[in-house]
């Protein structure tokens, strides 16, 4: 059995009309992690979740979920889902919505009430459980949505934009809940474009844009790929040294030198130079990218337009200077 709860290879989706929503996605999601699928609107994130939960069919590629081929109905019994823009029956109460999902997932009758009580408490909706969904705020609906996604004790939970419309307190609760679910050994697959929500809790991320996977991996590793060193100093740097540093690719501003490197030894000559000029080095810090910077870096790269080849022009190897 695969170690991955999700093991996808070359997943493609082309909608009617020729729109390519996914262009061959390879993805492996390990068990028991919080996995973030990031991407701008229209990147293909929801399409991916829809394929995994059988709302749409893939056009190509293969994959397994919990060791079974995608689309296996019995596997879906071990899956929880909060769809994007979830619409719950407005004539049901919060409790009834959770019980409704429990019924659909064939949860044993003896378990339903206990689990529903626990989940209502978990999402802090016990007091409002008897009110109809139509009377709930967006945030309350999302809380019930998360609770119903967990009622079948799922091994993997898909949450599509889970904090959409949730207030700051709700978002904090959401993060705590995700951590708790991870501790219980569940895999949480979160699809969002609100990066700040994900950053404190996510283990691995995949960045998708225009249907392509731009980057994937452990968040810390990805952020470390393009680190900066910040050297803060007190005093005035001589114009000659400043010019020399700038010509070497360093960014010099008042009291701060920024170097794009991951190696500490590269920073030493700069510190030596500052000391030799009698300046005080007050702070040296290795800065990693925020999730947002990482995300924007990937997305910007993918958005760089590649000029189309001129018809009839000879193909030129990229390392040769243009003729």
């Amino acid at each position: 059995m695969s170690d991955y709860v999700l093991d996808l290879s070359g997943i493609r989706k082309t909608y009617r009309g020729g729109v390519e929503a996914l262009k061959g996605i390879d993805l492996q999601v390990p068990r028991g992690c919080i996995y973030g699928l990031l991407g701008p609107n229209g990147a293909g994130k929801s399409t991916m979740i829809k394929i995994l939960t059988t709302l749409i069919r893939k056009s190509g590629g293969d994959g397994t979920m919990l060791g079974k081929p995608i689309g296996d109905r019995r596997t879906l019994q071990k899956v929880g889902l909060l769809p994007e823009h979830a619409q719950f029956p407005d004539y049901l109460t919060g409790r009834q919505v959770i019980e409704f999902t429990a019924g659909l997932q064939d949860v044993a009758a003896s378990e339903v009430q206990k689990r529903t009580d626990t989940l209502l408490e978990l999402v802090d909706m016990t007091e409002a459980e008897g009110r109809k969904m139509k009377g709930y705020s967006k945030g309350m609906k999302q809380r019930i949505g998360i609770a119903q996604a967990l009622v079948n004790d799922p091994e993997i939970v898909f949450l599509d934009e889970p904090t959409d419309g949730v207030d700051p307190a709700g978002r904090r609760d959401f993060r705590l809940l995700m951590k708790r679910l991870r501790e219980e050994g569940r895999t949480i697959f979160i699809n969002t474009h609100i990066l700040s929500e994900l950053e404190p809790i996510v283990d691995r991320v995949a960045i998708v844009s225009h249907g392509e996977l731009l980057g994937e991996g452990v968040l810390d590793d990805l952020r470390s790929r393009k680190p900066d060193y910040h050297v803060e100093y007190e005093g005035a740097l001589s114009p000659t040294t400043q010019a020399s540093m700038e010509s070497g690719g360093l960014i010099v501003s008042s009291g701060l030198i920024t170097m794009s490197t991951s190696k500490a030894e590269d920073v030493q000559p700069v510190i030596d130079q500052l000391r030799s000029e009698g300046l005080v080095v007050s702070r040296v810090e290795r800065k990693t990218q925020s999730l947002e910077e990482l995300f924007m870096g990937f997305v910007d790269q993918s958005n760089v337009a590649v000029p189309p080849p001129i018809p009839g022009a000879p193909i030129q190897p990229s390392f040769l200077p243009p003729s």
């Binding site: 019995r74 019994q77 979830a86 659909l104 064939d106």
Partner: peptide, 8 residues
């Protein structure tokens, strides 16, 4: 649809 069609 996600509430019903993604189940058992």
């Amino acid at each position: 649809a996600g509430m019903i069609l993604t189940k058992k």
